[in-house]
Every structure is written in C-alpha cells, then in structure tokens.
Design a binder for these strands. Structure first.
Lengths: 230, 230
DNA sequence: ATTATAAACGTAAATTTAACGTTTAATAAA
DNA sequence: TTTATTAAACGTTAAATTTACGTTTATAAT
C-alpha cells in the first residue's frame, strides 16, 4: 500500500423496484436487518464491499443474494457519506438501483432472507438514511421513464399496450391518456407487434408486443435519445 | 466500532469547469500529482476523505484548497470503485463536479498548487480513470444545461444575452439560433434586465441581465422545472 | 451625413401536444 | 341468432411549441 490515509467501511445499498403485473403496482424490496444497530428494523438490501471486489460486483452480489437474479437492470445512483450517518461506525454507502420483473420465485427467495416486497404507499420506517435513498430512487424512476426504455425492465418480455400504459400510470402516479400514449410509444417504432392476443382482461383481447432491444441499442450507438414524455 | 468488515481508502475527485468570458471557452482545472504512483502526471483535483468528515465537506475542502472558493456550485456525480483502478492501493473515489466563474484570482491560486486550467479540446492524458470522469462530467454539463440554470454558475452575476448564448454554444458545441435562444430564455421570466449596457463587443452595446435566483428557488419549491432545450 | 455591425425584435410554416370522439372485436346475455 | 357489453384500437382537431428565417435599431467610426 502506497497511501497513508484513514480507511473507511464501504457498503452497498440496493434499491430494488419490482412491478406486479397482476396487482398493477410498483413494489420495493426491503429486509429486516440482522445485526445491531437497528437489528430487526427495515432497510434496503445491502452489504459491505469486499477488499478485492469492484463496486459493481458487490452490487450484483447483494442483488443476487436477495433475489436470485443476475443480468438485470442494475445501476449506481449516488453515494451517501455523512460522517455520522450510521451509529454503528463510519460507513460510506454506495446506492444502486435495480428494476426487475416480479414473480413468485422472487418472493420465495426474498422470503428466505427475511426480505419482503412493499407497496410504495405502504412503506415502513427505514433505518439510517434509507428513506432518503428511496426518495432519490423514486425520483430517478420517474425521470428515467421519460428518457430511457426502463418500463420494459419491469414488464415480462411479452406485454400488451394497456399493460404498458398501466405501468407508466403507476410510475407517474397519474392516468395517461391511452390514445396519446399509444401514439407516442408506437411512433418510436421500437415495439414489435406479435399476432398473439392476451385475453385475460377483455373479450376482445389485447395484442402482445415485445420491445426491440436490438434496434434500440443500434439507434443508441448513433446518438438516438428516447423521449417518452407522456 | 460495531461492524467487522474490510476498510477501504475513500477519495474525493473534483471536476471543476470554468468559463472564460474573454476567450469564450470552457476550461477544466487539472493538477500535477505530487505523490507516487503517477507523480507529475495530470489529474483532477482531489484528496482523501478524513475519518470524521462528511463526503460533501471533503469535496468543499478539496475545491477550496485548489481554487480558494467556497459556496459555489458543487455536486456529487458518481463513484468509481473498480478494485484495481489505482495501482497505489484499493481506493474508492467519489467524483464531484463544480462550476465556477473563471478569473485571474483563481488562476493564481491554482498555480500555487501546481494546478492549471485546460481547454476542453486540449486536454493532456489523465491518471487512472480520470478521463472517464471527465467524459461523464462533460455529458452531465450538457444534460444539466437543458434542465437547470447552470449557465449562471459559469458567468459573472452581470451578463449579456449574447454572452449567455455564447456560453450555451460552448456547452452544446454548436451555434444556437440567437433569436430563438433569446425568446426561450426570456420566456422563462427568470432574467432581470438592468438599464446598464455592456459595450465591450459592439457599438450599440448589449443590455446587462441578472439571473433571478430568488424567483427560481421559489418556483422550484412549487415543482417548476426549467426547460432550456435550445 | 454615411457606413458598418452587433444587438434586438418579428413572423410564418411545420411540427408536436393535448384533449377529445368513434369504431372494432369478442363474449355473454336476451 | 340477434343484441348488449366492454376493453382495445383507431381517428380528429385546436392549441401550443419549435424551427427557420427576415427586419429594424442603436451606436461609433468614417
């Protein structure tokens, strides 16, 4: 080691949003802390960074531990580092956020770790500055929904336009005009219409679509910037 | 200390943008590292976080040391934490960015610390991942210019519309239509027109304006969101 | 007076947004 | 076998915004 400076505990906290297509609402994964201080209280999922571990690898490790998931949307959001934020000691915590497709499997794995999915409007008190983290993440979700195709991270690969609209309704917290939404989302030319119909919510059935990830990535390389300001 | 986990060096790096109103271009503050590894090579200004110091306080300390400035635009951007990013040891570095009004005083203070202002198109090689940091910061600058009044952080309190336009030209790297720019910026109703004229660049002289920070902060509280997508 | 020129002001077509109304496909009831 | 029902899909139009230009004005130098 060349440097001679104070060393500090570095943690990862991960804010996981999941969308429940049956309930049509957004949820957040929380778990009950096992160690003092705040043992038993609700917290974002998290853990400490290992000596030889990239931050991003640490975030992936934490996420997989609590959800069993790899290779999903996972990005760094912000770092929290007030000197006295954690009474347990000086901890600098890097906040990541993740978007996943909710299903029963993830509920089971979460359960095994004392983790639970909470509706956004029924959140418990959170430890330390985790409420602040959640506020930041929620803002980020709204903001990103306008400029990136994050909706498709939260829905199954196959989805209908009414489903997609309901998701955006949930994110924006208001009901978008469905005719304008349809026009805007289809005008991007990034949805692939299949000939399948989903009849779970209507007699007529809604056509099943798929997001054209390949095309989107190609366009991105050419400087394309999505605009879903609905 | 309650926790028993590996401790890691935590550093602050600060990307400082300055705008030179006489040269009409954006500059970045860099300094020559004094310690190994990479002693003598160019780097963003930075330092290690103290044991009992908030991250934001550390960033303010670093910025003041190299520029003499307090109470200027200074925000966290992102955290860099690859395990092997720094051959000198495991260092997690939190990147901050700052926007300041360039003048001779800051050049002098910078000089005393072996720091120098570089044009954005004449940058030297940078240590570790600092080029990546600079890329991120530049993107952030462009992005923020559209949705926040950051231009006024880079200009003197008194400025003219042609000056403001030239700044935005520099940020966006293209020449905006001055008639449309004027309309858009004035339509926000956030500029206070004074009866003073600046005649340094024309016989006619350009009216001096001031940004209405108070009004902007008031509007922000009410959910207002600036849109300068010129 | 005349000229030069940056600064300030103006306009109109094209595009986008916002706010609605209408038709269609399938099922279930009459 | 009609008819009613309803989510899904499609359509229209006025208002607002953006884009791309042309014109006038104030001042110093000639």
């Amino acid at each position: 080691m060349t440097y001679n400076h104070p060393k500090i505990l570095v943690a990862i906290d991960c804010l996981v949003f999941g969308y429940d297509t049956t309930e049509n609402n957004l949820k957040v994964l929380l778990f009950q802390r096992e160690v003092e201080p705040f043992a038993g209280e609700w917290s974002l999922i998290g853990g400490f960074v290992n000596e030889d571990e990239d931050l991003s690898d640490g975030a992936e490790r934490v996420l997989e531990k609590f959800t069993g998931l790899k290779d999903v949307f996972l990005e760094q959001l912000s770092t929290f580092g007030k000197a006295n934020r954690d009474p347990g000691g000086r901890v600098v915590s890097i906040l990541y956020w993740s978007l996943i497709k909710l299903d029963d499997l993830h509920r089971d794995i979460a359960n095994e770790h004392g983790a639970k999915w909470f509706d956004l409007d029924q959140l418990p008190e959170l430890v330390v500055d985790h409420s602040e983290m959640l506020k930041l993440g929620t803002e980020q979700l709204v903001h990103n929904a306008k400029s990136r195709p994050i909706g498709f991270e939260l829905l199954p690969e196959d989805f209908t336009l009414p489903q997609l609209k309901q998701l955006y309704d949930a994110i924006y917290g208001k009901s978008i005009d469905d005719r304008n939404f349809r026009k805007k989302i289809l005008s991007t030319d990034l949805l692939i219409k299949t000939d399948k119909k989903d009849k779970t919510t209507s007699k007529k059935g809604a056509f099943v679509y798929r997001f054209d990830t390949e095309k989107y990535n190609e366009l991105r390389k050419q400087g394309y910037h999505l605009d879903l300001n609905v």
